[in-house]
């Protein structure tokens, strides 16, 4: 049996933050300037009580309602998130119950950001092709906006909340040579950890009031500010200039393809300005380089499935097309794979 990507649905929370609203907060910006620097017109923001699990339930419910699969078909659920509901239990366990999945279903969370969808596909393929599972839900869900200081335009203009649900299923191989998903190239460089980080709220810098004993006497050791997202955009950009061209070359080499063999290139939708620069640097033909982020911003691990869904809806993907997926970001972590489009 081989793993194939059978269906994708995604969900965006209803609350909109558009460029004119951002300019009220930052009067030295203009809506046109934000659009030209980021390629984003609006982002969706989760409500205070709306968590990653809630977004995930909405995305997976859309998948069930589409007829792609039923809750009882799912025998493995993995949730990629960096904004889980709790330290413990695993948010995927909560989702198993809320989604009505069977109790014989495996479930786990994994903590990755912009590269997470690629890693999810890699693990789903491994589970299916070693006979451990037949229908794997790869769910990506983030509420980064809860980590964002309202006045920090460097991140507020970029990130939006979202969840995407992708069904990976076992199927008899269609032809022997080309895998439906794969091969994969992965990479990691923890030296970049400091450049995209939420420093507080974990064990290294617990928030105030979170302490063994919980007394006031050790409050000095605890951070009073809530967990806050910090991004050094220029350093992240320099990292992508170093890592992504090699990543693209690496996946071409491992898959034995040239750019002519690739029908569509879908990169993590980080920032359209950066994506265009990367595209031109790597010399990818613009007509085969897909960008879809103006309606939702950078949704971290959901950007690739959202872009795939939009490309499919727009008629840019047809059955049998070969798609290159490139993920890169927080960690630093990166990964790439090839899809043979099966929808």
């Amino acid at each position: 049996m081989q793993a194939i990507l059978k269906a994708i649905e995604y969900y965006l929370p209803p609350q909109v933050l558009d460029n004119p609203q951002l300019c009220v907060i930052a009067p030295n910006w203009s809506p046109q300037k934000i659009q030209s620097k980021t390629g984003i017109q609006e982002r969706r923001i989760s409500e205070e009580e709306e968590l990653s699990s809630d977004l995930a339930v909405k995305a997976v419910t859309k998948l069930f309602e589409s007829g792609a699969c039923k809750p009882e078909d799912i025998d493995y659920l993995m949730l990629c998130t960096q904004s889980p509901d709790y330290f413990l239990p695993t948010t995927a366990c909560l989702l198993q119950h809320r989604l009505g999945l069977r109790t014989s279903c495996g479930a786990l969370d994994f903590n990755l950001g912009c590269s997470g969808f690629i890693y999810g596909l890699g693990m789903a393929k491994g589970l299916i092709e070693t006979g451990q599972a037949t229908n794997v839900l790869v769910v990506t869900a983030e509420t980064y906006t809860k980590f964002i200081t309202p006045t920090d335009m460097s991140v507020r203009a970029l990130f939006g909340d979202a969840s995407a649900a992708t069904l990976i299923s076992a199927q008899e191989p269609l032809d022997g040579n080309v895998p439906a998903i794969g091969p994969f190239v992965y990479g990691t460089d923890g030296r970049g950890a400091k450049n995209l980080i939420v420093q507080t709220g974990g064990m290294r810098k617990p928030v105030a009031g979170f302490a063994s004993g919980g007394g006031d006497e050790d409050a000095d050791e605890h951070v009073l500010t809530p967990p806050t997202l910090y991004m050094n955009g220029p350093e992240i950009f320099l990292f992508t200039l170093d890592a992504v061209p090699d990543l693209v070359a690496g996946i071409c080499n491992r898959a034995g393809v040239t750019f002519d063999d690739v029908d569509l290139f879908v990169f993590h939708q980080a920032n359209e300005y950066m994506l265009r620069h990367l595209r031109d640097k790597i010399e990818i033909p613009p007509e085969r380089f897909y960008v879809s982020m103006s309606h939702c911003g950078n949704t971290v691990s959901s950007t690739i499935p959202i872009a795939l869904k939009e490309a499919h809806k727009a008629g840019r993907l047809k059955t049998g097309d070969r798609v290159m997926l490139i993920g890169f970001g927080v960690g630093y972590s990166w990964g790439a794979t090839m899809l043979r489009w099966a929808m």
């Binding site: 220029p234 950009f237 300005y273 620069h277 031109d280 640097k281």
Partner: peptide
Amino acid sequence: FIGLIAMLDEEFGVRIAL
């Protein structure tokens, strides 16, 4: 800075740390 880094990379093929 992003634009400057992009320009230096595109025009001169160099990547200068922030």
